[in-house]
Design a protein around this nucleic acid. Structure first.
Lengths: 223, 223, 223, 223
DNA sequence: AATGAATGAGGGTTCATTCAT
DNA sequence: AATGAATGAACCCTCATTCAT
């Protein structure tokens, strides 16, 4: 089953036509992530979206096209969401980090969007054009976002003067890996060995904050 | 090019027979990681190993078989190496962590074995049998290994009483992600924006050690 | 050349769809009988039916499937025809035998269905599932059919009290062999040495009737 | 298991070399009959004969060659055996027929040679050269043999003046079919429905003799 | 707009045959 | 004489894509 973002309204002809592209993209994402791009048949995608093979080609010119549309559509939705959180935030930088990871990352983790990370890892080598898009639209903005929070914290004496790029990676890489894992090994292992991703993310941020937080003595106390 | 572990000796009939399986596995790993399993043709693997398609089938009964052999062979080589480091080590637990990450993980990262992580992520959903092997032979032993180091450090008062499973993941997930990245986006982006994996790993461990290390006051001073 | 049962109508898309399965079966029968199952390429079958390889697979899931469909389709057509003759017949049992052999068997002999006998002989060992179908749908009903005619003849005093199963085989085996021969040696030998199958069948029945017919003295004279 | 004509003597090197060709032919006959020519692998033949693939090629230049050797070798053995029976016989022509069918044909039926009939039927279309050999060496001599017995019987007033070619076929075709059946359907059907080939052959000959035998009144009584 | 029948290039796998040992 | 590793042509089957309806 595709996981439609909106509950399916009564499928009148008009509604259908409106909803088609999204339904096709949802179906494609699910199957590409599940079976891999090469092993997913266009017919399966169409069938999962309740359409026929021919219809799929009315919206997307080729399988490769469909892949790129899936990636773009999903990422474009999430990109600014992060920036919005930062913009809206008022509070310590530590709390902002907590906010970003627990709200933004965990929401992504819980949504089908998490599959896009697996999809990109799986398919960039075959479609390198994706990499530039992903780097400029996701990786760089993301690094900048987190990086700026760290820099502000350091400048404010709230954080230690750690190497910012390294800390960004130490913070973010486990999140990406978590998403990837969810759709690879995580989907296979029956024994979930009581691994709770939400708990881990909270623990992870706190652990890293332990490393980041400047010793109290040296801290500038916010008045 | 396959990356033979040993320079090819004069290819007499006998020598070839001995070396073939390894050459084929090396070629397969390279191509499976590069192009994905489904998009790699058996003939390409054979050609890269300097053999013909038919020869490949003399050693591996099917493409799936070849995939599993590639994974097993690579992992079985590295599994004990880690344990050996732990066993051989005499020093602080912090130094042991440094040793494990800088020696073991970076050696894996630099070798073709790093590709196995991508391969597993990419293909487990299609071949779920792999997951159990990987979990029991790699994931669990690995977690135990790092987990015990942390526990010893905590017991010795060297480390803070952090949540061990969380800390293990925070330490390890970036390493896995690094390996995966090397063979996906990392292989596509020309502008390596001066990202130095070795430097990152060292920085990552030190950052986490900042979080782990107990405040001096509370530390048991080793006489 | 396929031997279409009906001259091909204008090949519109719809008409084609209807006619395809039969065209494919006819082509397959011809080639399987001519070249043997294993030596016939699916592409040849498709080409002979004026279709492409892919199309063939739209109708039959595999080569083995195609073989079984060929056999079933041909036999199911002929099975009742024989019973119908028996049911419709009014006359002496000797005449009924003449009818069955000259009408039914010779029609089968002259049609492509004769090839099915060769096909079954050639392929049962490889696909033993065929044997049960053939036995229960063709062999047993056939034996019963002829056997009953003989029994009725014996009961009526028209025939001698011969061993029925033996006589059935003596009557029928040459017919089967004739069909087989037509598609094996018979198709190779140029010098047809004036062998006339129709004449032989008539002669064969009369010869066996000589053996079957009770001496006049002992015959019950039908009033 | 191949069915060697002679119990295998101690396989000393010398013995082996002598026996090899025969062992290979026996193995080939068995497998060709069982699985069909096209579906039998040269390696299987070699293995069944206890040799290696390479060795097989020392004796037979190709698979086709092997097929022809199998057929020739088997048939050449049996051809004169029939003639010998006729030559040696002293008695009524009816008894000679009984002799030929019960001794010669049943011995062939019981031996692996019976498979050659299936083999020829199965493969002539692919290797038409076989047909000429088979016709001139087996079919024609066979027909002549039986035909002459019938003619002598007719001339002697022992038999009715039936059409000789027809009667020959009515006599012989069931025998061939019996051999073919043994290696096709007969090998598949578990329920042998108590069909006894030996009994059938005796019954068949007697039935045909009923047809052949001239009414006593007209018979020339052999003094 | 929607369908699904048709196509044919592509790739996994088999196996007859060769030849160095 | 015997072996069996190596080859590559051949064939079954899949599936992205097209197009008549």
């Amino acid at each position: 089953m595709p996981i439609p973002r909106t509950p399916p309204p009564p499928p009148t002809r008009q509604r259908r036509k409106q909803a088609r592209p999204q339904e096709l993209l949802d179906a494609a994402l699910q199957l590409f992530v599940e079976r891999g791009f090469a092993s997913t048949r266009m017919e399966e995608v169409a069938a999962l979206a309740g359409a026929s093979k021919g219809t799929l080609y009315l919206y997307y010119a080729s399988k490769e096209d469909l892949l790129k549309a899936v990636i773009r559509e999903r990422l474009s939705h999430e990109i600014e969401a992060g920036a919005a959180i930062v913009a809206a935030h008022a509070g310590t930088n530590a709390d902002l980090l907590r906010e970003l990871f627990v709200h933004w990352w965990l929401r992504v983790y819980d949504s089908p969007t998490s599959g896009v990370f697996k999809l990109i890892i799986t398919e960039v080598r075959s479609f390198p054009e994706i990499s530039e898009y992903y780097r400029s639209e996701v990786v760089e903005p993301g690094k900048l976002l987190i990086g700026r929070v760290l820099e502000r914290g350091i400048a404010a004496g709230e954080f230690r003067a750690v190497d910012v790029p390294t800390a960004v990676q130490s913070l973010v890489l486990p999140m990406v890996m978590l998403c990837v894992h969810k759709h690879s090994l995580g989907a296979c292992l029956k024994v979930d060995d009581a691994f709770d991703p939400h708990a881990f993310v909270r623990g992870h941020v706190e652990l890293l904050l332990l490393a980041l937080t400047a010793p109290a003595a040296k801290r500038k106390i916010p008045a």
